[in-house]
Design a protein around this nucleic acid. Sequence first.
DNA 1: CGCTGCCAGGAAAGCGCTTACCTGAACACA
DNA 2: TGTGTTCAGGTAAGCGCTTTCCTGGCAGCG
Lengths: 338, 338
Amino acid sequence: MATLADVARRAGVSPATASRVINGSSKPVADELRERVLRAVAELRYVPNAHAQLLARPQRSVVGVVVHDVSDPYFAELTRGLQRVATDRGRLVIICNSYRDPERELEYVEMLRGQQVAAIVLAGSGYHDADFTARLTEKLAAYEATGGRVAVVGRHEHPGDAVMPANDVGGRLLAEELLRLGHRQIGVIAGPQVLTTITDRLGGLRAALAEAGAPLPEEHIRYADFDRDGGARAAAALLDACPGLTALVALNDSMAVGALALLRQRGIRVPEQVSVVGFDDMPVAADVTPTLTTVRLPLVELGARAMTLALDPAGGGPRVEVLPATLVRRESLGPAPR
Amino acid sequence: MATLADVARRAGVSPATASRVINGSSKPVADELRERVLRAVAELRYVPNAHAQLLARPQRSVVGVVVHDVSDPYFAELTRGLQRVATDRGRLVIICNSYRDPERELEYVEMLRGQQVAAIVLAGSGYHDADFTARLTEKLAAYEATGGRVAVVGRHEHPGDAVMPANDVGGRLLAEELLRLGHRQIGVIAGPQVLTTITDRLGGLRAALAEAGAPLPEEHIRYADFDRDGGARAAAALLDACPGLTALVALNDSMAVGALALLRQRGIRVPEQVSVVGFDDMPVAADVTPTLTTVRLPLVELGARAMTLALDPAGGGPRVEVLPATLVRRESLGPAPR
DNA sequence: CGCTGCCAGGAAAGCGCTTACCTGAACACA
DNA sequence: TGTGTTCAGGTAAGCGCTTTCCTGGCAGCG
C-alpha cells in the first residue's frame, strides 16, 4: 500500500507539501509541485489511510447508529431518515444491528466510542430490564462526558435528547376506532413483553378500552415474536382459546400480515367475520388482501429528527420531541358482526 | 477522552504494561499490576482508540460491502447471508448503499480502501457502461494489488471471484411455464435498461420464447423504475398499448406487486383475465392476493458464498459460482384465457 | 548594497497505540 | 563471591498522517 511518503518521494517534494496538495490545504503550493504530486498520486493509486488521518487530525465526522435490524422495514424507513440528514451534512454513517440482543447493543456502543464517532443514535424499543438500562445509561454518559453526542428514538428511559413516536396514542386510536365499529371482544397479538414499545402500544389500547367500559382481559393478549410467523402463531392461539373474538389487534404490521395469512388459511373472512388491524403502516399494508387498517408512524421523519438532534450542538437540557401517530383506514377493519 | 497513557499513569505502570493487560498479551504480567491496570481502566472508563490500534497493528479485520440499498428486501436478504458468514468469522461489516449511482459506488470503493478493509464485496447488478466498468475494474485491481480481496455478486463483467444468480435461467423458467399454460401475448415489465440484471433476465425470457416460435416484440417491453410504482406505471402503459396481452412478466417482485395493484384498480381479474409473474420470491410474494408466481433466487446463500470467497485466501484463478433459480408456482399465473 | 519582510517549502513534533528490544533484579550454580 | 540465566517490566521506535514552526531565497526599500 503506497503511503504519503512514497508519493512525496516520487514527486520529489516533502510529505508536508504532498499532504497540502492532497487535502487542498489553504497554504499555497506552486503549480509545478502540485502537478507533480497529483501525477504521483495517480501513478501510485494512492489513497490516504483513513485511520492515520483520524489520528493526526481528530476531526470526528462519522456517526454511529444502532438499530434492531436494518432489513426490518420499520428500521429501513427510520434509517432512510437518519441517512438523509447525515448525508446532507456530509457525515458518514455506521449502522449496527443489535438483533434485539441487549448485550450486543452494549458492545456496539463501546465499539462506536472506540471508533471516535461524533454521535451515536440508538433507535428502537428499549427493554424492561433495569440492570441493562443502567449499564447502557452509564456507558452513554461516559461517552457524552468526552464530548460525544447521543440521541435516541423511542426510549423514554434514556435521560437525554430523544424523539418519541406516539405509541400510546396509536394504541388509543385503534381502540377508539374498534369501539366505534361495535367491537367488544378484542384479541391482541403482541410482540415480546420485554420491549417497552409493546408496553406503550398496549397501554394506550388498554386505557382507551377500560375508559369505554370494555376492559381488556389478560387472556385476550398473546405475546410472540415480533414478526410474521409470530403473528400467525399468536392469532391461532387466540382464536383457539377465545372463539368469540371479533377483532384482532396486531402490534405491528408484520404480525398482522401473519394473522391475515392464518385467517385465510382457516377460511375465516376478513373483515366480515373477524377484523384485523396492524401498527406502523409498512408498505406491505397496502398490498395485502384485504388491505390493512393500521396506525401510521412518521418513521422517516422520526429518523431525520433524531439525526438532527444528534448533530446539532447539545441544548441546555434534554430535548424530547413526540411525533404523532395517525389512523389509516383500509379494508381489514369492518363493523363487528351481529 | 482518556488515553492509554492516562491509564498507565493512574495505575503507576508503563504504557507497555497497560497495553499488555488490556489486550491480553501473551507476555506475563504480575497479578498486582494487572489488577491496578484494570481498576484504572474501569475508573477512567477507558476505551482504546480504534484508529490508533489499527495504525499500530495493521491487522485488517473489517470488510466492506457495497449494495444498492439494504432496505430493499432483495439486498436485505443478501446482506443477511453476508453478515452471517462475516460474524461467524469475527469480522465486522461496513455496509454502503450506492442507491444505484455508479459514481457513488466508485467513491465507496475508494473510501473502503482508505479504511484498510480486509475485503470488499460488491453486490447487485452491474451497469451497461463501459467507461464506468473500466474505472471500477481498475480501482478494484489497485486494491487487490495491495493485498485486498474482492468478491462480487451478480456481475459477470468483473474479472475475479464472483457468485452469480442464474438470472437467465430464471427468465427461461418463467417463459417455459407461460408457454405451457398457453400464453402467447406476453408483456414484460422491466427495470432500468442500464442494469445487466435486466438484460440477463430478459435474455433468458426472450431466448426461450423465440425458441418456441413466439418471439417477444420490442413493443411488449416497458422499462421503468425497479420498484412498486415503476411496476404499476409500466403495467398501465402496456395494457393501454397492447390490449391483447394475457400475461405480464415483471422482472422483480416489487414491480409485480405494483402491477397487481394496478390491475385490481382497473378491475381486471388475476389470473382469469391476465396472469402476472414476478422475480426474486421476496417475502411479500406470498402475502399479496393473488399470491405471486415467481422465481426464487437463493439470496441468503448467495451472500454467504460471496463473503466466503472474499474471506478465503485467493484461489489460483477467478472462482465463479452460479447458484440456481427455481420456479415457485402460486396463484397469479393461470392458463391463458380463451 | 544592506536590511527588512514575505512566503513557499521543509523539518519535525506529535496523534494513541503496539511491540521489539533492553534493563536490572532475582536466583542458581560453580 | 562471581558469573550466567531468566524474566517481569520499561524504553523507545514507528505505524501514516497533519500541522506548527522554522528556513532560506527573493523582492522591495532606504
